[in-house]
């Protein structure tokens, strides 16, 4: 079951690299959240109820419901479901993400450790680097944010990959989530309207000379 979830998680990453519409990105991130929710449930069934509930509620509410809903309402419905400007052709992104997958697999295999499971680690590393890749190649604030959320999902998966200090690390990841929600909801959506379009080319006033 976990394999199925992690593979679907991986496929969402591949899809993210070629997605072209804002709504697709949003849906994919929400889907990732849903998969993380199930993975967390299966993986952490045995920890104490309070912690489990906290983590599950956080994944379900923040990742699957609140963030996608707000992004949908404040960005997509308001400005229309615009196509995201792809700077690098989807074909290249796809190749890169596949390569990332392969490399993260190799890395996790070479660093083989009894404590972590290769499948988790591969998924997590692939998500982190795919997120970084999305941030590097895209030029829109929206896709940057999606890249950040992908990284963060990767971190969450990574914290699940480590069996030992589960409650503390996962709680920290939860904290990270809450912070990032603050980041997105607080600043981004309310304030960046000052810039007429959400293109990073507009964020170029700060420079030397």
């Amino acid at each position: 079951m976990i394999s199925l979830l992690i593979i679907s998680f991986g496929i969402t990453l591949i899809y993210l690299s070629i997605a072209e519409r804002m709504r697709t990105y949003n849906t994919l991130i929400a889907l990732q959240g849903l998969m993380l929710f199930f993975i967390t449930y299966i993986e952490l069934k045995n920890i104490d109820v309070v912690h489990l509930l906290l983590i599950l509620l956080e994944t379900l509410i923040v990742k699957v419901i609140v963030l996608p809903y707000f992004i949908h309402r404040l960005l997509i419905r308001k400005n229309g479901d615009k196509p995201v400007a792809l700077v690098v052709p989807g074909f290249v992104s796809l190749t890169v993400v596949t390569f990332i997958f392969f490399m993260s697999f190799l890395v996790s295999y070479l660093l083989h450790d009894d404590q972590i499971q290769v499948k988790y680690f591969t998924g997590a590393m692939a998500a982190i680097f795919t997120g970084l890749y999305l941030i590097i190649v895209h030029k829109q604030v929206f896709t940057h944010m999606m890249g950040y959320l992908t990284i963060e999902n990767g971190i969450f998966l990574l914290s699940l990959a480590i069996g030992n200090e589960m409650p503390l690390t996962v709680n920290l990841a939860v904290l990270l989530d809450v912070f990032s929600s603050v980041l997105i909801l607080g600043l981004f959506i309310n304030r960046l309207e000052m810039f007429s379009s959400l293109d990073v080319d507009q964020l170029k006033d700060l420079k030397d000379s």
Partner: peptide
């Protein structure tokens, strides 16, 4: 792009 997606999925 579509055809390459299949390769990616096959890689997974």
């Amino acid at each position: 792009q579509f055809i390459l997606t299949l390769s990616s999925i096959a890689t997974i």
